[in-house]
Amino acid sequence: MNRPVFRKFAAAPHIVWAALFIAAPLAFVVYYAFTDEAGAFTLSNMSALVTSPNYRAIFLRSISYALIATVICLVIAYPVAYIISRSRVRAQSTMILLIMLPMWMNLLIRTYSWMVIIQDTGFLNGILSAVGLPNLHIINTPGAVILGMVYNYLPYMILPIYSVMVKIDNRLIEAAHDLGAGGVQVLFRVIFPLSISGVISGITMVFVPSISTFYISQKMGGGSYDMIGDAIERQFMNNYNYNLGASMSLVLMILILVCMAVMNRFSDEDTGGVIV
């Protein structure tokens, strides 16, 4: 306490670690993105992303699928979070636990379990055939990819919204009712403004993993609906074109930073309920 100078050295290992394994790798992403295989400066990786219609399609698809999945998650999660937050306190913890339990399963298993159901020869079609109904083709469609995202990331939307809503004082809602507000008015003018920080962190927590996924699109889309994550993974694991892969990662990172900056504009305070 008397010699806080020495105390600060306790952070030294972490500072070295962060410089070596957080800052340096990011610098390498930038370095590889702007060099060719020989290590000479080039803009061709970046320009390839803009000019190639294939990559443009991949980026647009990633953004739109992630947006749709986020909106669907929000539409489902908002009423669910509201219902839980207005339940009895003892029931609340059980309800939340039941929502978190599937999250403890690995993403690969959760995604694969849906494949088992919606495959052409899967469980769902097995049941449909048994009852004599025509089979459905769901797997390898954009809808299947979005279903995979919604299933995997829905809890990330419910939990932050719930944790903000549970703090809303019931008396505020009663007061609004007493002062003549109808149900819809209470929702839009009292509950929603008070829960906005949870909504914002929920949107970020669903959008970021959705836009950058590669396993979900690989399995549920059958490889026909590539996302940014698939393109990056292919460059690093199959084509070994690290420079192109790095340029895509850089664009993805910037894209997400911009989205987050825009989102933070919407929330004036960061008292949001971030549940990790």
Partner: peptide, 27 residues
């Protein structure tokens, strides 16, 4: 600045964290 740098792996998508470290290790 230090806390922000520390939080980078938490904020960044996993694939970018993974790929960036892979580049370092390979280099």
């Amino acid at each position: 600045a230090l806390l922000n740098l520390t939080n980078v792996p938490m904020m960044n998508p996993d694939i970018v964290t993974g790929v960036s470290m892979m580049l370092l290790f390979v280099f």
